[in-house]
Amino acid sequence: MKEIHVNQIVDAVEALCMKAAYDLPKDAEDRIAACAKQEESEFGKYIFDQILENVRYARENDYPICQDTGAAVFFIEVGQDVHITGGSLEDAINEGVRRGYTNGYLRKSMVIDPVFNRKNTGDNTPAIIHTFIVPGNELKITILPKGGGSENMGKLAMLPPSAGLEGVKKFIVDAVKTAGGNPCPPVIVGVGIGGTMEKTTLLAKKALARKVGEPNPNPQYAQLEKELLEEINNTGVGPQGLGGRITALAVHIEYFPAHITGLPVAVNLNCHAARHAEVVL
């Protein structure tokens, strides 16, 4: 049994919030740079240049890459041999977010109530926390700050099994095409297939936490990711929706067994600022 005090979690989360906002991970930057070389449109090339310059400028000066520093989405893997002491895990994460977003000069984007009281909470809490119990004695914290523009373009379909592979592909490509310039393309397309309604949307979100462009280990799904990327890039939407070769940087699919009656599919889009950061305690 390993003991982890909540203060360690607060400190780690504070640092993660800032790191994620300022410092685009290498995998995302490398993928953007590789795709930039394939872009043919003049506006597309200009936009790629600006995006890459912005990434470097933000990193060098500790400035947020994007003003939408997101809802603070967390994936927490708690080893079953870990004992958290000194308080609650949820409170510790929210305290870390409060400090990280305040001390890091990040934008606070959460409102108190979605319908009846849209007043800003003032410190970007509450965080959106997904916790998983896993074997081992480590606590792994992953933050995926999620911008609203791309999040709003998410889609869910509870398809009938008769829709099959073609139905799944059509739904995904249409979702990206209809989104157009809204989610700040070039995007990363997170896809969940299977499970139940909430499972498939969570899979789509989890797919966005993968290293950008890393294929699914299952060769059938890796192939599907490749085909979808090609079809999406053939829509012509292009960088920022102004037309071009590159609409998406990558398609990431996560799948799960499904009920005999269903074929759920969820699409969760992420902008090119594919921010994520993780730490293991």
Partner: peptide, 12 residues
Amino acid sequence: FAAIGGAAAIIS
């Protein structure tokens, strides 16, 4: 007009 979404640091 469109400004480039996600190029926020250099825009500022």
